[in-house]
Simulated assay, not measured.
Amino acid sequence: MSIQDIRDPAAIHAAMAEYDRVGRTYFLEKYGFGKAREYMLRDPANGRLYDSKAIVGAAHGYAFPERGHLSATDFSGGEVTVEHLLSTLGFEVVRIGQDWTRDEVQATVRDYFEMLRLEATCQVFNKSEHNELLRQRLRARSKGSIEMKHQNISAVLDQLGLPYIRGYKPRSNFQDLLREVVLAHVQHQQPMMQTIVDAIEEQTGPGNKTYRGVLVEPPVPESIPTPKRRQRLPRKLDYAARDERNRILGHSGESWVLGFEENRLSEASRADLAAKIDWVSERCGDGTGYDIMSFEEDEVTRFIEVKTTNGGSLTPFIISQNELEFSEETEDAFCLYRVFEFSNSPRLFIVRGDLNQALHLEAMDYRARLKSISR
């Protein structure tokens, strides 16, 4: 039995259809093949990639039911066998595993920023459709590899302190070329980036006022190496600083947390404590080191500092020296409430105790006065 006996493209199409139905893992296990390391069959209609040798092995069974499929040990793969057969039958074979080219990276970055713009301006878009359109251009890239590249872009934006697309959690281990292209795009498209940040900042109301299920565990960020030299961007693009200066967003976030606390204590049958919650920053202004005084169910005081963003859970935020020192003094009585995705569907996580122990802190500003000069 030889793969060269396969003369009808319909057998290849049948194997591809089965691959789509059952998924890659089951298909490879069923026919006894490993994942392709070098060559993949590509469907030009939708950009999907298939393990070329496994497809040919399965196709033999479709072409010759009485003989059955071929296993991985029945024939060799590669350029002169599988690739030659598929090309002869009119199929496209692409080589994988190579570094992304500048053109591929630039196309992916442009697509990412278009999705970020649509998300920031509350326009509906479909990530899968964007991925599929990219695959039609990036012939050797799979759906998974493009998704990973999108997460890599999020990691670069996170390093720059800029917003990134919800659902594309930052993933490191990216090419230096990717960072270079993202940075160039941000610098050359500053008006567009400012439009994105402005649009996100303008959304100051909560996406909903339902508190059920909003409390989540603090995210576990992937360890992303800090660049050797901090990249300086225009202050108008400093997302964390803009969150801090956005008084309406901050006020709305505190009001939402006030409602969350009242709901939490009421559900714990402590309506008496809910009635005693004090919105200190509203009554006295900033400077106390916390925003809201609430209570544990056993009446112990809980000091709450609220930090609100329309960005994701890993968006950086600003902590003042006063807030930092207050967290040291009050220890476990201090709670940082990080409210995120506020305008979409608010959620929060809580960091309790000394913030020095839980946060990576980066010095940004100093209070300066002239030194005395010895004569």
Rank of each mutant, 00 (worst) to 15 (best):
L237S: 07
D74K: 09
Q106R: 15
F125H: 14
L138H: 06
V105M: 12
P225T: 12
K149D: 00
T121H: 10
V186G: 03
P191Y: 07
P170T: 12
P9T: 01
F113L: 05
R37M: 12
K228P: 13
R7Q: 08
P163M: 05
R232V: 15
R369C: 12
P218G: 03
Y337S: 01
P219D: 04
R24A: 03
L89Q: 04
P9W: 01
G32Q: 10
G47Y: 02
P227V: 10
A107G: 04
I6P: 02
K371C: 09
V257G: 01
Q123N: 11
D158M: 14
A107F: 02
I165Q: 14
D238A: 12
F340Y: 15
A14I: 04
R264E: 07
S2K: 11
H150M: 13
D354V: 06
V351W: 01
P346M: 03
F303S: 09
L41M: 10
L359Q: 11
L361P: 03
E329T: 09
E282M: 10
H185V: 01
R135S: 02
F340G: 06
K307F: 03
H360T: 11
D5Q: 08
D354H: 13
S327Y: 05
P218C: 06
P206V: 07
P65L: 00
I248P: 01
R283V: 09
E18L: 13
R141M: 08
Y50R: 05
K209H: 08
A184I: 00
Y19M: 01
T210F: 00
R229F: 12
V339D: 06
A107N: 08
S87F: 03
Y39C: 07
T288D: 10
G97A: 08
L233Q: 11
A184P: 00
C335Y: 03
H360F: 09
T73Y: 05
E362N: 09
D272I: 00
F27G: 08
S320G: 13
I224Y: 10
F27W: 05
N46W: 00
F260A: 08
E147C: 00
Q194P: 00
R212A: 10
N208F: 01
K53N: 09
M293G: 02
R166S: 14
N152P: 02
E104Y: 10
Q231L: 12
M40D: 12
Q98Y: 06
V197I: 14
T330A: 13
R166G: 13
S313H: 08
R232E: 14
Q321N: 13
R135A: 03
A184Q: 15
L134R: 12
R367I: 14
E79F: 11
D51Y: 06
E244Y: 15
F260M: 01
F174H: 15
K143D: 09
A72P: 00
A358Q: 14
E104D: 15
I153M: 03
S313R: 11
L233K: 04
S327M: 06
V182Q: 06
V109K: 07
R139G: 01
T108Q: 06
D243K: 05
E325Q: 13
A11F: 02
R212D: 11
Y366I: 07
F125V: 07
A184N: 11
L157N: 06
Q321A: 14
